[in-house]
Protein backbone atom coordinates (compact mmCIF):
# COMPACT_ATOMS: atom_id res chain seq x y z
CA UNK A 1 0.00 0.00 0.00
CA UNK A 2 1.06 3.61 -0.01
CA UNK A 3 3.46 3.41 2.87
CA UNK A 4 5.45 6.51 1.98
CA UNK A 5 3.04 9.01 3.55
CA UNK A 6 2.29 7.15 6.74
CA UNK A 7 3.91 9.10 9.54
CA UNK A 8 2.71 7.07 12.49
CA UNK A 9 5.24 4.65 13.88
CA UNK A 10 2.62 1.90 14.00
CA UNK A 11 3.76 -1.38 12.58
CA UNK A 12 0.81 -1.78 10.20
CA UNK A 13 -0.99 1.36 9.08
CA UNK A 14 -4.74 0.88 9.67
CA UNK A 15 -7.20 1.76 6.89
CA UNK A 16 -8.41 5.39 6.87
CA UNK A 17 -11.82 4.70 8.42
CA UNK A 18 -10.33 2.79 11.32
CA UNK A 19 -7.74 5.52 11.81
CA UNK A 20 -10.49 8.13 12.13
CA UNK A 21 -12.32 6.09 14.74
CA UNK A 22 -9.06 5.63 16.59
CA UNK A 23 -8.49 9.38 16.49
CA UNK A 24 -11.98 10.06 17.87
CA UNK A 25 -11.47 7.45 20.55
CA UNK A 26 -8.13 8.90 21.67
CA UNK A 27 -9.45 12.50 21.69
CA UNK A 28 -12.47 11.55 23.79
CA UNK A 29 -10.32 9.49 26.14
CA UNK A 30 -7.93 12.40 26.58
CA UNK A 31 -10.87 14.70 27.31
CA UNK A 32 -12.12 12.27 29.96
CA UNK A 33 -8.72 12.15 31.62
CA UNK A 34 -8.46 15.94 31.57
CA UNK A 35 -11.79 16.18 33.39
CA UNK A 36 -11.13 13.30 35.78
CA UNK A 37 -10.65 14.07 39.44
CA UNK A 38 -7.47 12.01 39.61
CA UNK A 39 -5.82 9.44 37.41
CA UNK A 40 -6.23 5.96 38.89
CA UNK A 41 -7.26 2.51 37.69
CA UNK A 42 -10.96 3.17 38.12
CA UNK A 43 -10.93 6.40 36.09
CA UNK A 44 -8.79 4.81 33.37
CA UNK A 45 -11.21 1.92 33.01
CA UNK A 46 -14.36 4.06 33.13
CA UNK A 47 -12.83 6.47 30.62
CA UNK A 48 -11.90 3.67 28.25
CA UNK A 49 -15.47 2.37 28.29
CA UNK A 50 -17.09 5.81 27.99
CA UNK A 51 -14.80 6.76 25.10
CA UNK A 52 -15.72 3.51 23.37
CA UNK A 53 -19.45 4.26 23.69
CA UNK A 54 -18.99 7.81 22.38
CA UNK A 55 -16.87 6.58 19.48
CA UNK A 56 -19.52 4.06 18.45
CA UNK A 57 -22.35 6.58 18.86
CA UNK A 58 -20.56 9.19 16.76
CA UNK A 59 -19.24 6.76 14.14
CA UNK A 60 -21.44 8.16 11.32
CA UNK A 61 -19.75 11.56 11.73
CA UNK A 62 -16.17 10.34 11.99
CA UNK A 63 -15.72 11.14 8.28
CA UNK A 64 -15.20 14.75 9.31
CA UNK A 65 -11.73 13.86 10.45
CA UNK A 66 -10.72 12.39 7.12
CA UNK A 67 -9.53 15.87 6.19
CA UNK A 68 -6.75 15.75 8.76
CA UNK A 69 -3.33 15.48 7.23
CA UNK A 70 -1.41 13.16 9.46
CA UNK A 71 2.02 14.18 8.26
CA UNK A 72 5.03 14.71 10.51
CA UNK A 73 4.83 18.45 9.90
CA UNK A 74 1.13 18.68 10.82
CA UNK A 75 1.56 19.25 14.58
CA UNK A 76 4.05 22.00 13.79
CA UNK A 77 1.52 23.68 11.49
CA UNK A 78 -1.14 23.30 14.15
CA UNK A 79 1.09 25.05 16.69
CA UNK A 80 1.92 27.83 14.24
CA UNK A 81 -1.79 28.22 13.52
CA UNK A 82 -2.59 28.44 17.25
CA UNK A 83 0.13 31.06 17.74
CA UNK A 84 -1.13 33.09 14.78
CA UNK A 85 -4.70 32.68 16.00
CA UNK A 86 -4.05 33.92 19.54
CA UNK A 87 -2.07 36.89 18.26
CA UNK A 88 -5.01 37.74 15.99
CA UNK A 89 -7.47 37.19 18.85
CA UNK A 90 -5.69 39.68 21.10
CA UNK A 91 -5.36 42.20 18.27
CA UNK A 92 -9.07 41.78 17.55
CA UNK A 93 -10.04 42.42 21.12
CA UNK A 94 -7.90 45.53 21.48
CA UNK A 95 -9.20 46.81 18.14
CA UNK A 96 -12.86 46.28 19.02
CA UNK A 97 -12.29 47.67 22.52
CA UNK A 98 -10.84 50.83 20.99
CA UNK A 99 -13.85 51.24 18.70
CA UNK A 100 -16.30 50.64 21.52
CA UNK A 101 -14.69 53.23 23.78
CA UNK A 102 -14.07 55.86 21.13
CA UNK A 103 -16.71 58.62 21.43
CA UNK A 104 -17.33 58.79 17.66
CA UNK A 105 -17.83 55.01 17.34
CA UNK A 106 -15.55 54.64 14.30
CA UNK A 107 -17.07 51.71 12.41
CA UNK A 108 -17.64 51.19 8.70
CA UNK A 109 -19.60 47.94 8.65
CA UNK A 110 -20.41 46.03 5.46
CA UNK A 111 -21.00 42.51 4.26
CA UNK A 112 -18.21 41.16 2.07
CA UNK A 113 -17.46 37.78 0.56
CA UNK A 114 -14.19 35.93 0.94
CA UNK A 115 -13.05 32.91 -0.99
CA UNK A 116 -11.33 29.90 0.51
CA UNK A 117 -9.11 27.20 -0.93
CA UNK A 118 -10.03 24.79 1.87
CA UNK A 119 -12.26 22.00 0.60
CA UNK A 120 -13.06 19.95 3.71
CA UNK A 121 -16.05 20.81 5.95
CA UNK A 122 -13.80 20.68 9.00
CA UNK A 123 -11.29 23.08 7.49
CA UNK A 124 -14.00 25.50 6.41
CA UNK A 125 -15.59 25.37 9.83
CA UNK A 126 -12.24 26.11 11.46
CA UNK A 127 -11.66 29.02 9.08
CA UNK A 128 -15.16 30.44 9.67
CA UNK A 129 -14.72 30.15 13.42
CA UNK A 130 -11.32 31.82 13.26
CA UNK A 131 -12.80 34.67 11.24
CA UNK A 132 -15.59 35.13 13.77
CA UNK A 133 -13.15 35.31 16.66
CA UNK A 134 -10.80 37.87 15.11
CA UNK A 135 -10.37 41.49 14.00
CA UNK A 136 -13.84 42.92 13.57
CA UNK A 137 -15.02 40.15 11.29
CA UNK A 138 -17.99 37.83 11.73
CA UNK A 139 -18.82 34.85 9.51
CA UNK A 140 -22.48 35.13 8.52
CA UNK A 141 -23.02 32.42 5.94
CA UNK A 142 -21.08 29.92 3.93
CA UNK A 143 -21.85 28.79 0.42
CA UNK A 144 -19.45 26.33 -1.17
CA UNK A 145 -16.09 28.15 -1.22
CA UNK A 146 -17.49 31.59 -0.41
CA UNK A 147 -17.83 32.81 3.15
CA UNK A 148 -20.06 35.82 3.77
CA UNK A 149 -18.40 38.04 6.36
CA UNK A 150 -19.65 41.02 8.29
CA UNK A 151 -16.68 43.36 8.47
CA UNK A 152 -16.76 46.10 11.07
CA UNK A 153 -14.19 48.28 9.29
CA UNK A 154 -14.62 47.69 5.58
CA UNK A 155 -12.53 50.02 3.41
CA UNK A 156 -14.69 51.65 0.73
CA UNK A 157 -14.85 49.61 -2.46
CA UNK A 158 -13.33 46.44 -1.07
CA UNK A 159 -13.80 43.53 -3.50
CA UNK A 160 -13.53 39.77 -3.14
CA UNK A 161 -9.79 39.84 -3.72
CA UNK A 162 -8.83 42.38 -1.07
CA UNK A 163 -11.30 41.01 1.46
CA UNK A 164 -9.90 37.50 1.01
CA UNK A 165 -6.37 38.78 1.43
CA UNK A 166 -7.13 40.86 4.51
CA UNK A 167 -9.44 38.44 6.31
CA UNK A 168 -8.86 34.83 5.36
CA UNK A 169 -5.46 34.38 3.72
CA UNK A 170 -3.40 34.32 6.92
CA UNK A 171 -5.50 31.67 8.64
CA UNK A 172 -5.87 29.66 5.48
CA UNK A 173 -2.13 29.38 4.94
CA UNK A 174 -1.68 27.89 8.41
CA UNK A 175 -4.75 25.64 8.31
CA UNK A 176 -3.68 24.20 4.95
CA UNK A 177 -0.69 22.72 6.75
CA UNK A 178 -2.80 20.20 8.62
CA UNK A 179 -6.22 20.16 6.90
CA UNK A 180 -7.37 19.77 3.32
Amino acid sequence: MNGQKEPMPSSDSPPPALRQHLLVYLSVYLLWLLLAERIDGQELLAGALAALVVTIASAPYAGLFSALRLTPAAPLHLLRYLGYFFAALIRANLDVARRVLSPTLPIRPALVEVQTRLVSPLGRMLLANSITLTPGTLSVDIDDDRILVHWIDCPPGADLETATQRIAAGFERHILGFLE
Partner: peptide, 12 residues
Amino acid sequence: YNRIQAGTKAGT
Protein backbone atom coordinates in the same frame (compact mmCIF):
# COMPACT_ATOMS: atom_id res chain seq x y z
CA TYR B 1 -24.31 42.34 13.59
CA ASN B 2 -22.15 44.90 15.34
CA ARG B 3 -23.47 43.92 18.75
CA ILE B 4 -22.47 40.34 18.07
CA GLN B 5 -19.03 41.61 17.07
CA ALA B 6 -18.58 43.48 20.33
CA GLY B 7 -20.06 40.65 22.37
CA THR B 8 -17.99 37.78 21.01
CA LYS B 9 -14.71 39.61 20.70
CA ALA B 10 -14.56 41.14 24.12
CA GLY B 11 -16.43 38.26 25.74
CA THR B 12 -14.01 35.61 24.48
